[in-house]
Amino acid sequence: MIKIHKLTKNYGKNRGVLNLDFEIPQGEIFGYLGPNGAGKTTTIRLLLGFLNPDEGCCVIKNLDCRKEAAEIQKFVGYLPGEIEFLDGMYAYEFLNLIANMRRLKSNYKKERLIDILELDTKGKIRKMSKGMKQKLGLVAAMMHDPEILILDEPTSGLDPLMQQRFVSLIKEEKTAGKTVLMSSHSFEEIEHTCDRAGIIREGNLVTVEDISVLQASQRKSYTVTFKNSSSVQEFLKFGFKIMSSNSNIVEVEIQDNLKEFLEVLTRLDVIGLDTVKLSLENVFMQYYGKEDKND
């Protein structure tokens, strides 16, 4: 459905994308992961035909993304990463404009999305909150029921309830056989929706893997708070992989020895236990089992 072949757009200083190569088959939900400035948005701009590639090409349904951009838009829905609407419009006016520019016949999907996302279309866009603008962008991107969705950080600004609604919307689209590419800078955001993920860093595609593989390779970190330093000393004797220790708080990395870890904890004076949310950098550093040399 989407093919990216040797795609290069080099802005220098590690900006842009270098020699990207991957494909997204029909019906797949593809997560595009990377830290800020890694090249996610550049890739998406190339897919939308906003940029001319330095080398290589990208193709959607056998149409060149740059040369046949207008044709491609007939079956693509796009949510920009930084959403800016036209000044001084009401939300419903904006949706009508985009619908009319698309010659959209049916309002069914639009009304349904407005309903699900609880979008207030009567407000002036300028006065809307970031989350409300995000919802408006999502409705604009999805209201023509496109075969392919390209969403740049779709959940940013959404509250947890709306994030959940969004996840079920995407699952619905998947059931309907739609293809989705969504970018994100956090693994948690995509792990519940995506089938596969590509990880990009400094313009290079680091890996493309099934989500299940990425999840399996994930090690977990916990922070344990002990009552006193003698408990800490005792805990350290068991030889777990200690990430850091700061007075009575110890961060431990646990992979397949969770049971043993919990058994040890029951014998000690523990007053707190938290899981550590892993940043994306950690996820793929773990995936490679090597530390980042730059840090």
């Binding site: 035909g49 207008a70 838009q73 693509v76 920009p80 800016e84 609407f85």
Partner: peptide
Amino acid sequence: KFVDQGSMAFLLSTPNSRVK
């Protein structure tokens, strides 16, 4: 203005070419 503001993205995400 549309390009600077970013709203051109929405106009171009409709099936209308840049020339049009």
